[in-house]
Structure formats: structure tokens, C-alpha cells
Amino acid sequence: MKISKKQGVQNTIPTGSMADIIFLLLIFFMVTTIFKMESGLPITLPRAESGGELQRERLITVWADRYNRISINDKLMRVDDIDKVVGAKLEENSNLIVAFKVDRIAKYRLVSDIIEQLKHANAINVTFVSVAEES
């Protein structure tokens, strides 16, 4: 008895669903990626023309708003505690730059007090974060 073999086997991979797989992967990684971000305090930064770009890795940010609240690493703190926190950070990495993110209508007294604390902690390099001037 003769059995005829069917030779009609397809040797192509169906690529129609490839797009769905790529979309799924894309959406999966979009959803699962978490950026390490400090949320800080809601402030409006002052404007300045001459601001240079900052390297994010070297910064420790001190947030201060118009209601005299101070936040470092998303923790609210009193002025007197800044030197300890910043001092501990500086021990890990001595060439850190302290970035001031201060509301533009905050009182200078607050900034002055923070600067005094930083001097105690020997944090010499500071930078006043600003946004580019809109002409």
C-alpha cells in the first residue's frame, strides 16, 4: 500500500504577532522601570542666565521652600540637623556638591542659616540651582 506524504509543510515563522510581542515587552519595561528620584518640596526655582549644567551623581540637594521647611533626602528636618546629615554624606564622598533648591521668594535668612550649617560640616562646594532665563 502506498501512502503519499504531504509535502505542504510551511517553513516560515509567522511574524505577524512579532509586533504584539515587542509592544508587550516595551510596555512591561515602561511600567516596571522606576527612576530613583527625590521628590523634594514644591518650589519655584529662581531664574539665572549664567547657570552651568550640573552632574547629578555628585549632588546632595537641600530643598527649602517659602514656609521655611527644609528637606534633605525627602526627610523634613530642622536647620540644626543639616550639618550632621551633610557631614555624614561627605564622609562617604568628600567631593560632593551641595545643591540649593530654594524657592525664589524664600527669605534669605533661611539660606543664610543653611550656609552656616554647611560651613560647620565643612561642605565647601555649593551650587544654587536655577532655571534658564526665558527671553
Binding site: 539665572a48 550640573l54 554647611l118 562646594n125 555649593v126 551650587t127 532655571v131
Partner: peptide
Amino acid sequence: AVDRGLPMSLPGES
């Protein structure tokens, strides 16, 4: 978004 800033050097304690 890149932060921009005005750098300053403070006098240290010492």
C-alpha cells in the same frame, strides 16, 4: 531635564 546651577565656594570652618 538637566539641573543648572550657580557654583560657589564657601569658606570652611578651618
